[in-house]
């Protein structure tokens, strides 16, 4: 059963053809990453999945429940504190305080966005998307301003959250390691007009080996051997 099925989806902006017949099936509770050169239409694709853009042809079938979206920009409300930003869009504004601890937000709850660094704002953005608790989470290069150490701990926390709550996740990224850490499957996009040019199933290590990262480097080598243009 596919949670999300895309059939021949294409998109033009004026005379510029961005996406040319995208076929994708993403199973329920799976985590996938979309990789490809800048401007190849990855963001456009997840905007269409979120319903913010309409495809010019093809179909998008999405199971009911809607999508949460961590945008590339933090998109926080400037006159609200971090806590208000996290709760404002929710129907049920009560949040389990352990959530703030897990994502390192406790200390900044009363700060305003303009008082935070780019990385912290981005954390709030991701936190907000996670709190929507939708069956589908879309993330558009959400870790850009976050340092490596925080990035890894964030990825771990989100992965745990996903195991607990079971949601499908689509991550748009340039970073192959990030994609490998996060995802069950990687989809590679070519340059404009873009199509899916390759697919890779990530061989996840047993839980015990997860912390060592050896598997990550091994996996990275294999991916790069097959798709040399995606070496970073």
């Amino acid at each position: 059963m596919g949670n999300l099925v895309l059939k021949g989806v294409c998109k033009n902006f004026g005379r510029l053809q961005v996406l040319d017949g995208i076929d994708l099936t993403i199973a329920q509770n799976h985590s996938v990453a979309l990789l490809g050169p800048s401007g190849c239409g990855k963001t456009t694709l997840i905007r269409m999945i979120a319903g913010l853009e309409k495809p010019d042809c093809g179909e998008i079938e999405i199971s009911p429940g809607g999508a949460a979206y961590a945008f590339q920009e933090p998109r926080l409300i400037p006159w609200k504190t971090v806590k208000e930003n996290l709760t404002f869009f929710l129907e049920e504004p009560e949040i389990d305080p352990t959530f703030f601890d897990t994502f390192g937000l406790t200390e900044i709850l009363d700060s305003y966005p303009h008082q935070l660094s780019g990385g912290l704002r981005q954390k709030v953005n991701i936190g907000r998307a996670l709190l929507f608790k939708k069956p589908l989470l879309l993330m558009d290069e959400p870790f850009q301003n976050i340092d490596v150490k925080n990035r890894v701990s964030f990825i771990r926390s989100i992965t745990e959250q996903r195991k607990k709550e079971g949601f499908t996740m689509i991550l748009v990224t340039h970073n192959l390691r990030e994609a490998l850490l996060f995802s069950d499957t990687l989809f590679f996009f070519g340059p404009k007009p873009s199509r899916v040019i390759g697919e890779w199933t990530v061989a996840k290590p047993p839980q015990t080996a997860f912390r060592s990262f050896d598997w990550l480097f091994e996996e990275e080598k294999k991916v790069v051997a097959r798709f040399p243009e995606f070496m970073i």
Binding site: A50, G51, L52, G66, A67, A68, Y69, F71, E73, R75, I77, F89, F132
Partner: peptide
């Protein structure tokens, strides 16, 4: 407009 997209997405 970016905030309004969040509004639209969350059916606020």
């Amino acid at each position: 407009k970016q905030l309004l997209e969040v509004v639209k997405l969350t059916h606020l």
